[in-house]
C-alpha cells in the first residue's frame, strides 16, 4: 500500500472534521474491504481516519426497534441474544458474512457505507425498512442505496447507527459465490402488519433492490407457494463466470421461496 497518515480520533466531531478538511482522507471502519484495496494499491488516501475510537459500538432494543451502532462487528450482531430474539434473521445473516476472521473485524456501518452489490447487509436494511442514522440526519433505507458502491452519504457524513423495525417474521437466504462466498443471490424477506418487503442482493446491476412483484404476491399470502412462481426479469441482473443473469433470476425465485419457508 501507499503511505498515508493514520489517525484515530476519539470523538465524532473530530472524525468528521478530519474527513471534511481533506477530500483525500478516508474513513476506516473494519477495513475488510478497504485494507485489501489499499494493499492492492487501488486507492491512495492521504489520511486514514480510524473510527474505532468513537465509541460507536453496541446494540439496544427498545420500542419495537433494534438499534445497532455503526462500528458493531458482524460477530457481535450474530452472537447478540437481543438480536437473536428480536430479529433472528438479522443475527443469522451477520453470522454468515465472510469467515470468522472477517466477522470479528467487519462492521455494519462499514458494509453499508461501502454498499458492495454482493454484500449481505444491504438486503436486510432494505427489506426491513431500516433507517440509517448519520452525524447529520436520518436516511430511510429506500433513499439510501443508490447503485453499485453508491449511497446517499455525503463526503463528510458518517453512519452512526442503524435502526431496524422488528418484523412479524423474516428470513435471509444466500446462494454464495463458491469462490468468494459473497452472495451471487441473497434474498431477505420480511413480513410486517403493513405488508411484506423483499430485497435482493448480489444479483442486480445497480446493487440491492426491492422485488415489487414478490412483495405484492407475499402481501396477499405470505407463503412459499405464493412467491415461488413469481418470475424475475433477467434484464438488469449481473452475469459473470459463476452465474448468468438467467441463472440469477432463477435463483432469486428459489432463495425467496426458501426464505419465506424459513421465516415460518
Amino acid at each position: 500500500m501507499y503511505d498515508f497518515t493514520y489517525l484515530k480520533p476519539s470523538t465524532l466531531p473530530e472524525a468528521v472534521s478530519l474527513l471534511s478538511s481533506d477530500t483525500e482522507a478516508k474513513a476506516l471502519a473494519g477495513g475488510m474491504t478497504f485494507i485489501p484495496v489499499l494493499k492492492q494499491r487501488l486507492a491512495r488516501p492521504t489520511k486514514l481516519v480510524d473510527l474505532a475510537g468513537l465509541g460507536l459500538s453496541g446494540i439496544s432494543v427498545a420500542g419495537g426497534k433494534v438499534r445497532i451502532a455503526a462500528m458493531t462487528t458482524h460477530m457481535t450482531v450474530a452472537d447478540s441474544p437481543d438480536v437473536q430474539k428480536a430479529i433472528p434473521a438479522l443475527a443469522k445473516l451477520a453470522g454468515g458474512i465472510g469467515d470468522k476472521e472477517v466477522r470479528h473485524r467487519g462492521t455494519i456501518g462499514g458494509s453499508l457505507a461501502n454498499n458492495d452489490p454482493s454484500a449481505c447487509y444491504p438486503s436486510a436494511v432494505l427489506a426491513l425498512g431500516a433507517t440509517i442514522l448519520t452525524n447529520k440526519r436520518i436516511i430511510a433505507a429506500d433513499d439510501y442505496f443508490q447503485g453499485m458502491f453508491a449511497t446517499a452519504l455525503e463526503p463528510d457524513e458518517l453512519i452512526t447507527a442503524v435502526e431496524f423495525p422488528v418484523p412479524e417474521k423474516a428470513a435471509y437466504m444466500k446462494f454464495p459465490n463458491p469462490a468468494s462466498r459473497y452472495a451471487i443471490v441473497g434474498v431477505f424477506v420480511a413480513k410486517f402488519p403493513t405488508g411484506a418487503r423483499v430485497a435482493v442482493t448480489g444479483a442486480g446491476q445497480s446493487g440491492v433492490f426491492r422485488h415489487a412483484a414478490m412483495e405484492e404476491a407475499l402481501g396477499k399470502s405470505f407463503s412459499p407457494e405464493a412467491v415461488g412462481n413469481v418470475p424475475t426479469d433477467a434484464e438488469n441482473l449481473n452475469s459473470d463466470i459463476h452465474a448468468s443473469a438467467e441463472y440469477r433470476a432463477h435463483l432469486i425465485g428459489v432463495m425467496a421461496r426458501r426464505a419465506v419457508a424459513a421465516a415460518g
Binding site: N177, P178, A179, S180, I241, H242
Partner: peptide
C-alpha cells in the same frame, strides 16, 4: 467440481484471485 482457470478471449486471466478461482475448502 470447483476449480477452473478462466481466460477471456483476449487472454486476460479472469480467475486471477481467490475471489473467482474456487479452491476447495473443508466445507466443500
Amino acid at each position: 467440481l470447483l476449480e477452473n482457470a478462466v481466460y477471456d478471449g483476449s487472454a486476460q486471466l479472469v480467475t486471477g484471485s481467490m475471489m473467482d478461482y474456487t479452491m476447495p475448502r473443508a466445507d466443500d
